[in-house]
Design a protein around this nucleic acid. Structure first.
Lengths: 195, 195
DNA sequence: ACCTGAACACCGTTCAAGT
DNA sequence: ACCTGAACACCGTTCAAGT
C-alpha cells in the first residue's frame, strides 16, 4: 500500500489533533504510517514544508468571498472565519503563527480584507496595512485563547482562573478587539472621505 | 571559577545575539561556558525557564511610567518602547512571542497600558481588553518585521523585495497600525463619556 | 517511483557520584 | 553548593541500496 502526499498530510493532521503540535514529529508520523522516517522525505522536502501544507489546509475556506453587505460586517465575517479556522484543530493558531509568520500577510485572506477596506474608501496602501494590523491581532488573540484552553484541559490552572469561566468569555474578548479595530478603520475612512 | 545564574543568563543572551534563537541550545550554551550540559540545570530547572528569564530581561525597562502628558501619546510611547525592546536583540520578538505567549497579558506593560486607558475614560475591563489588543498587534507586527530583517540579511529575498527598501518603512508601518488602534480607543472612550 | 536500513549530527533532561 | 560523567530517550535529515 503506497503512500501519497495526501496520506502524509492526513496522518500529520491526525497526530496534530490527537497529540498536539509538540508531538507532531517526523519519526512519530512515520511510525503511525507504518513507514521509515526517510520515506516521508520523498513526499515533502522537509518538516517546514509539511507544516506549511497543514497551515494552508487549516486556513483553506477562510478566504471565501464575504456574503455580508456592509464593509464592516464583511470584515467581521472574515475575521470570525479566520478565528474559527484556527480554532478548528488542536494548536491550530500556534501552528499557523509559527509556520506562516510573515506569510499570513502574503495570503489570500489579506487580499480579501484589503479589498473590503478599499471598498470602504481606503487607498490601496492603507488598506493593506489595515489588513496586516487585523491579521496580527486575530493571530495573537487566538494563539492566546487556544493556549489557555490547553492549559485548562491539562489542569495547570486554578479552577477560578479557568478560561471557561473567564468573564468576558473568549468570543466576547475577540469581538471587543475586533470592534476596536473597526472603529479605527471607520475613523480613517471618514477622514479620507472628508479631505 | 564558579558559575552563577547571571553568568548563565549573560551567556545565553550572547549566543542569542551572535547565532540566533534556533542555535540557542542548552548544549551549545554549556560549551560556551566551559561546563557540562547538566551544570546548567543547577541554575535553571529547564530551558523554558531560562528563555523566560531572557524574555523578562528583554522587556525590562519597557514598562517604565510614561513621561508624555496626553493618554494617546503615553500609549504611543509605551508601544514604541516595547517595539524597541523587542528589536534590541536578535530574534527578540520571536523569543518573547514563543515564550511569553499568554504571559505578555500578565505583564507590567499590560497594567501600564490599561492604567492609561482608564485615565482616558475606559472602564477597567475595557481598558484591560484594549491593552491586550494592542499587545497582540505590537508583538505580531514586530515578529514579522524582525523575520523580514533576518530573511534579508540571509539573502532569501530578491533585492527589490528587501524590507530595507520597502515602502512604507517598518517604523511607518508600525505607526500606521498604532494610530489605527488609537483611533479605535478614542472612539470607544468618547462613547463612554457621552453615555 | 517509492521505500528501507542505517547512519550522522544533533537535542533536553536526569542523576549518581565527585569536590 | 556546584559540577562531572554518562546515560536515556529522543530529534530532523541524508542517501546508497533495494523493489
Amino acid at each position: 500500500m503506497q503512500l501519497n502526499r495526501q496520506d502524509v498530510l492526513d496522518g500529520a493532521i491526525a497526530i496534530l489533533d490527537e497529540y498536539g503540535l509538540a508531538d507532531l514529529t517526523m519519526r512519530r508520523l512515520a511510525t503511525s504510517l507504518h513507514v521509515q522516517p526517510g520515506a516521508l522525505y520523498w513526499h515533502f522536502p522537509n518538516k517546514q514544508t509539511l507544516l506549511g501544507a497543514i497551515a494552508d489546509h487549516i486556513l483553506s475556506g477562510a478566504d471565501a468571498p464575504p456574503t455580508e453587505d456592509s464593509w464592516d460586517t464583511q470584515i467581521g465575517q472574515i475575521a470570525h472565519r479566520l478565528r474559527d479556522a484556527l480554532l478548528s484543530r488542536r494548536d491550530g493558531a500556534e501552528l499557523v503563527a509559527a509556520t506562516y509568520a510573515s506569510r499570513l500577510t502574503t495570503n489570500h485572506i489579506r487580499e480579501r480584507i484589503a479589498a473590503v477596506c478599499i471598498r470602504a474608501g481606503l487607498p490601496r496602501r492603507d488598506a493593506e496595512l489595515t489588513a496586516d494590523t487585523l491579521l496580527y491581532y486575530i493571530l495573537g488573540q487566538t494563539v492566546d485563547e487556544q493556549a489557555r484552553l490547553h492549559m485548562d484541559s491539562v489542569g495547570a490552572l486554578t479552577p477560578d482562573a479557568s478560561p471557561l469561566f473567564e468573564s468576558p468569555d473568549p468570543t466576547s474578548r475577540f469581538e471587543f478587539g475586533l470592534q476596536l479595530f473597526l472603529d479605527g478603520v471607520r475613523h480613517t475612512a471618514a477622514d479620507r472621505i472628508r479631505h
